[in-house]
């Protein structure tokens, strides 16, 4: 298998009793690039990944690696490396955790020190995991996925808990894995968190697919907007209403669906409102992501 493996999710549905976590989800993840799997908390990302890895049974549909479900893979650990919740026995050392896992997966034990080196954890190898920070657990989880030198990597919120230096490191690391022709799927609830490391995005919300495509296609979507704020927000709102401008209230003021700050400023002038800020919103990427997943409309 020289050219990696494609992740194929087809008509996937998963219900827990009356709750539908994932509904009729279909998408594919191609090798050679980093794909961000995005959606707010509770959107069904983790359920999708756990189903893909055979940890949960789908209610309907399939989730496979090039047509083969995880448990039927010839050598699962050498095909797919997955990090889901960075959970370890607290009394076991990092090296021993990797040794045990390597034995279970049938991987030669010399790989243990190699992957520790790869994630920069060699000096902590003999320490018990119980004393590790979340960032170190994330690194150890990543080291575990690399044991089998897999063609596919599935990482659930790998950036969670990393310090800025760790985040920079993992971004470069994911990119280098994809350059080798591997399939890399990274989930996150924040687009901004993975924005600099992903090439493709798969966005879901409330269990349903809302968008797939390249990151740049999402950027095109992000129409420029204007941010405006005033000491007296009620009067500003009235003035915007008066001018017929559409807006939503954010932490830094009103986000107006109007690319030209001049028009917004004029509306304020007409309404006799003193402004504290008025500027154009440059990157609307996060906003267009939030608009896609339905946040800001009252859903948590």
């Amino acid at each position: 298998m020289g050219d990696g493996t494609t992740i194929e999710i087809t008509g996937l549905t998963k219900r827990f009793g009356a709750v539908t976590a994932v509904e009729d989800l279909t998408f594919t993840v191609e090798p050679g690039r980093v794909t961000g799997f995005l959606g707010p908390n509770g959107a069904g990302k983790t359920t999708t990944l756990r189903t893909l890895l055979g940890l949960e049974r789908p209610t309907a549909g399939t989730a496979t690696f090039g047509g083969t479900v995880y448990r039927d893979l010839e050598r699962p650990f050498e095909t797919v490396g997955a990090a889901l919740d960075a959970a370890f026995h607290p009394g076991r050392s990092a090296r021993n955790h990797l040794r045990v896992t390597a034995t279970a997966a049938g991987i030669r034990s010399s790989r243990v020190d190699e992957v520790l080196e790869q994630v920069g954890m060699s000096e902590f190898a003999g320490r018990r995991v119980g004393g590790f920070s979340l960032g170190m657990r994330q690194r150890l989880a990543l080291a575990t996925t690399l044991l089998g030198d897999p063609r596919v990597l599935v990482l659930d919120e790998p950036i969670n808990g990393l310090d800025p230096e760790g985040i920079r490191w993992i971004r470069g690391f994911l990119q280098s894995l994809a350059r080798d022709g591997r399939t890399v799927l990274v989930s996150s609830h924040l687009l901004s968190e993975v924005q600099q490391s992903v090439d493709e995005v798969v966005i879901i919300s409330r269990g349903r697919l809302v968008r797939t495509g390249t990151l740049s296609s999402l950027e095109l979507d992000a129409s420029p907007r204007t941010v405006v704020d005033a000491p007296d927000r009620a009067r500003l709102a009235a003035a915007l209403d008066q001018a017929g401008l559409e807006y939503t209230e954010g932490r830094g003021g009103f986000i107006v669906a109007e690319p030209d700050p001049g028009i917004v400023g004029h509306a304020a002038f007409v309404g006799d409102v003193e402004l504290s800020s008025l500027h154009r919103l440059k990157s609307g990427l996060e906003e267009s992501f939030l608009a896609l997943v339905g946040e800001g409309e009252g859903e948590a």
């Binding site: 940890l55 919740d85 959970a87 026995h89 607290p90 896992t101 279970a104 575990t144």
Partner: peptide, 17 residues
Amino acid sequence: TEFRHRTLTTTFLAEPH
């Protein structure tokens, strides 16, 4: 212990059977 420390995930990834 595998349930308590949630290590079943890794265990079943290494050996899905």
